[in-house]
Design a protein around this nucleic acid. Structure first.
Lengths: 203, 203
DNA sequence: TATTTTTGTGAGCAAGCGTTCAACTATGGA
DNA sequence: TCCATAGTTGAACGCTTGCTCACAAAAATA
């Protein structure tokens, strides 16, 4: 019943994602979006209601596909968890010839003052990354690759901050040597956060 | 000769700074700027040539006053350098009741893809912060507060990334407990970066 | 085939944008 | 006192913005 949709939603969200990553929400006009996605405003508004709606859909898609995917590959499924953490960091630095657009989460977090609707998506994405770090760290601890009293939660938060900071520096266009030394620092700092000895610790 | 300027340039730059910190460059319209600074477009364009020119002036003022000031107070003039590093971090978290607008450098770094004219200012500001960390770390090492073979340069870059990451998380609106635990992590990670023993090290 | 339903198309809208400028006001020197 | 100079004012300009909607096109149903 009725005409069939001519365009693929995943493809459209992917190109919208790319555009928003580069220019941000405020910096991407609907004409830009039209050009990037190939969608006319009518179809766009029929499906996503508003520019805002499209952005939220793109952010959700980013969380589901890019973030979850990267977390799974580097932080959850790799045999060597510490090597996975390292590659999670370096993979944001080595992105080919052109300058890296950074992470949509980082960029949106910074823009979220003017874009409160995006806060939920940002929180969720950050939590996924933090959870991934926690998973990798727990596995590393069980393998004996870290001190046995490693504070997994605190270290995961620490790595999340470091990762977000790295993405800011990537976006600022700092030289790769600096970025790699930050990665080295991140790896070296793992293990410096131990759980304080608790009085009622019966484990 | 001629009429006297009725407004104070420092005050105007301060309020422009505040506005840009909250809304970013793209998000602050000239009507907003007019309201925030009390300046009519004519005076504005006479002095700063363009919105862009005003932004660059505000960024320079931010570097000179806010960044340099904070670096001096926390990282260069304090008797206890490690305590200074800690307060440098915590001072961005405890900023009163209202949500923190974050750091203009962080926000601009992220926006600098659409704002290449700001790249120089961002680089400069980041270098000042990194230099401040290096100064504090050197002093801490001389006092014996860190391992003697601490890699000051790498640790300074590490702290810079961590600091920028913290500001992203602040901007994302994460709870203060998380932010404080990041600070704790930052302090704990100092000392984990040592200089690799060089073959031709004659010192 | 005629009708109903869904989707695509793109000109066009009001509102807002960054910017300009001619008229106006204050000041110092001749 | 008059003029040259510097600064203020705010209406208005051309464009772009996010968004709408009447119409055309295609598929499903009768």
């Amino acid at each position: 019943m009725g005409r069939r949709q001519l365009w693929d939603q995943d493809e459209v969200l992917a190109s919208a994602m790319r555009l928003f990553r580069h220019r941000g929400y405020a910096g991407a006009s609907l004409r830009d979006i039209e050009e990037a996605t190939g969608l006319h405003p009518g179809s766009l508004y029929r499906t996503f209601q508003s520019k805002d709606g499209l952005f939220r859909a793109a952010l959700d898609a980013y969380n589901e596909r890019v973030v979850q995917g990267r977390v799974r590959v580097h932080l959850m499924e790799l045999a060597d968890p510490l090597a996975g953490i390292r590659s999670f960091f370096t993979s944001t630095i080595e992105t080919g010839a052109e300058p890296d657009p950074g992470c949509l989460l980082t960029n949106t977090a910074v823009e979220s003052f003017t874009l409160p609707q995006a806060a939920v998506g940002v929180h969720h994405g950050l939590a996924v990354i933090e959870g991934g770090f926690a998973d990798a760290l727990t596995r590393a601890r069980h393998r004996g690759d870290t001190p046995p009293d490693l504070d997994v939660g605190a270290t995961a938060a620490h790595l999340l901050a470091l990762y977000q900071g790295l993405l800011v520096l990537v976006r600022a266009g700092l030289p790769r040597t600096t970025l790699h030394s930050v990665t080295d620092g991140a790896m070296a700092s793992i293990g410096s956060l131990r759980t304080p000895r608790k009085q009622d610790d019966h484990e």
